[in-house]
């Protein structure tokens, strides 16, 4: 049994220590906002924040984040309209929507770290894959959110 602090709440889970955080969230805790896309830290659909840092949960063993502050898309949503989410709605960013929770968690971490990112900063920080091709709107929405903070 390990204890994970997710969105400010402690969760006791009976899992093997090397089970990736992604599957603890999804299959053990029913927190399905965090998505599976590749399983090898390529696509970023599984992005959460660990102590404020955007992290790919599909390759993060549960045991490695015991004691850390884990933040998922559910926290962003529960906070009401976050600046990021408002910008995402204003710019109609999602198409299929599947990669967007990971995209928004990465963008949220970026803005916390760098409130006014340049295009180059965005290029460096947003490495998530979107097959629908929402990148132009993701970029616009991040700039818009930066101007609203």
């Amino acid at each position: 049994m390990i204890t994970l602090k997710i969105n400010g709440q402690d969760h006791n889970v009976d899992v093997e220590p090397d089970m990736p955080l992604l599957w603890v969230l999804r299959d053990k805790l029913g927190m399905t906002g965090t998505k599976f896309g590749c399983g090898i830290a390529q696509c970023g659909a599984c992005t959460v924040q660990i102590n404020g840092v955007a992290t790919r949960s599909c390759v993060t063993p549960a045991a490695a984040v015991v004691g850390a502050e884990i933040k998922t898309i559910e926290a962003l949503t529960d906070s009401g309209n976050s600046v990021i989410q408002k910008a995402w709605i204003d710019h109609e960013v999602p198409q299929c929507g599947y990669c967007q929770p990971g995209m928004m968690m990465a963008a949220d971490a970026l803005l916390k770290d760098n409130p006014h990112p340049t295009d180059e900063d965005i290029n460096a920080a947003i490495t998530n894959i979107c097959r629908c091709g929402t990148y132009p709107r993701v970029r616009k929405a991040i700039h818009a959110a930066a101007n609203n903070t």
Binding site: K35, E74, Q85, W88, I89, P94, Y98, Q100, M104
Partner: peptide, 14 residues
């Protein structure tokens, strides 16, 4: 479908 998707509300089949 935008607002719900932004708030991660849709339950995809997965």
């Amino acid at each position: 479908d935008i607002a719900d998707k932004v708030h991660a509300k849709p339950v995809y089949a997965i």
